[in-house]
Simulated assay, not measured.
Amino acid sequence: MRPAKGQRAIGLRMYGIRTVWDTVGDGEFFCPGCGGDRNYRRLSGRRRLTVLGLPLWARGSAGPVVECAACRDHFPVDTLDHPTTTRFSAMLREAVHTVALAVLAAGGTTSRTVLETAAATVRDAGLDDCTQEQLFTIAEVLAADTGPDGTGPGAEACSAALAIELHEALGPLAPHLAVAGRESVLLQGARIALADGPYGQAEREVLATVGSALRIRPDDTTRLLAAAARTPS
């Protein structure tokens, strides 16, 4: 015999599953629900069968999840892989600064125009106090073991060190940039290299490394660099 409608409703109130959440961590993250930086709690849950509202028997685990302190929504833990807006801005500034230094180290720092272009590019990225003198000093240190044409005894080691620096600065940023954003970072480096004339061989190699670190296909990197060279400054 089927229970009456009222009996079914009573049954639903008598039995149920409740999840008890425990906080296992906290911090700041970019909330997909709020669309901004928020505090979060990382939660681990335990499901319990309840009778008359009392938790009695364990029914397995739940989560872990991330709970936004503002909207209280729950999100997968991999949401924490997305940088906060503050961290993202810092990563972008660091990326442009590293690209500028790598291009300067590869192409030399004897051109005032190149230094002016590099400093302006870095300041536009958010490092307002960057000066030509600062870039000159750091770039000279990076290129100290190479010859004037980038073929000295330390050139290979310097090139490898620059490649490592570029991948460390650009690799974590690339997944969070749209295609246009990744191309923009590459083109900023290209404009610095072109400030004193056509690309040198060392500059081309550095910019190819920039494209690789930004997950831009080699053919697209070549196309973008060629287009930048044809564009009047």
Rank of each mutant, 00 (worst) to 15 (best):
T121P: 03
I138Q: 10
A118G: 02
A143Q: 11
A155C: 06
G171W: 04
L186A: 06
E168G: 01
I192R: 01
A227K: 08
P218Q: 05
V185F: 01
P153D: 12
A229P: 08
D124G: 09
T221P: 00
D149Q: 13
E116A: 13
L170F: 01
G154I: 03
E140D: 14
E203G: 08
A202P: 03
L142F: 11
G197W: 07
L207E: 10
A161Y: 01
D219K: 09
A193D: 05
G150Y: 04
A174K: 08
T221K: 02
G152T: 10
A118P: 00
A118T: 00
L194E: 03
T209K: 11
I216A: 07
T137I: 11
T222K: 14
A160N: 11
E165V: 00
R230T: 15
A160M: 11
L186M: 05
A161R: 09
L187V: 11
A144H: 11
T222V: 13
T121A: 13
R182E: 11
E165L: 15
P148T: 09
A144S: 15
E183Y: 02
L115N: 08
L173K: 00
S111V: 01
G154N: 06
C130E: 15
A195K: 03
T209S: 14
L194D: 03
V141W: 09
T113Y: 10
C158E: 14
E203M: 04
T110K: 11
I192Y: 07
S184C: 10
I138V: 15
G171Y: 04
Q134R: 14
I216T: 08
A125M: 10
V179C: 09
